[in-house]
């Protein structure tokens, strides 16, 4: 049986306020449905905001769920920079 493709990894360009902190945001994202591992790196820092690269890995990532989790923390997705999709046979 052929299963439908699922997202295994995404890299997002995210703009966030200084609070919550990067570890707090990472903990929130990893508790989202479908995410197993989160890696965040700081790209740029401004007076009120921080630009970060968020890499999310999981068995079946739902981008909408990740978006909701990120927006709940007061951050916003600028762009989806990388996506890795796999199909299990």
């Amino acid at each position: 049986m052929v299963k439908s493709p699922t997202i295994k990894r995404v890299v997002l360009d995210v703009l966030k306020p200084h609070q919550p902190t990067i570890p707090e945001l990472a903990s929130r994202i990893v508790s989202c449905n479908g995410a197993n591992r989160v890696k965040i790196s700081l790209a740029e820092i401004d007076q009120n905001t921080e630009s970060i690269k968020v890499q999310v890995e999981g068995s079946n990532i739902n981008l909408e769920t990740i978006k909701t989790c990120i927006e709940e923390m007061g951050a916003t997705i600028h762009s989806v920079d990388e996506v890795e999709v796999a199909r299990k046979v």
Binding site: L15, K16, P17, P20, D46, Q47, N48, T49, E71, E72, M73, G74, A75, T76
Partner: peptide, 16 residues
């Protein structure tokens, strides 16, 4: 309001 302007985002549903 200042934060919303910086983020270009409506924070009504956020933890903030």
């Amino acid at each position: 309001e200042e934060l919303e302007k910086s983020l270009l985002l409506d924070l009504d549903n956020s933890v903030h």
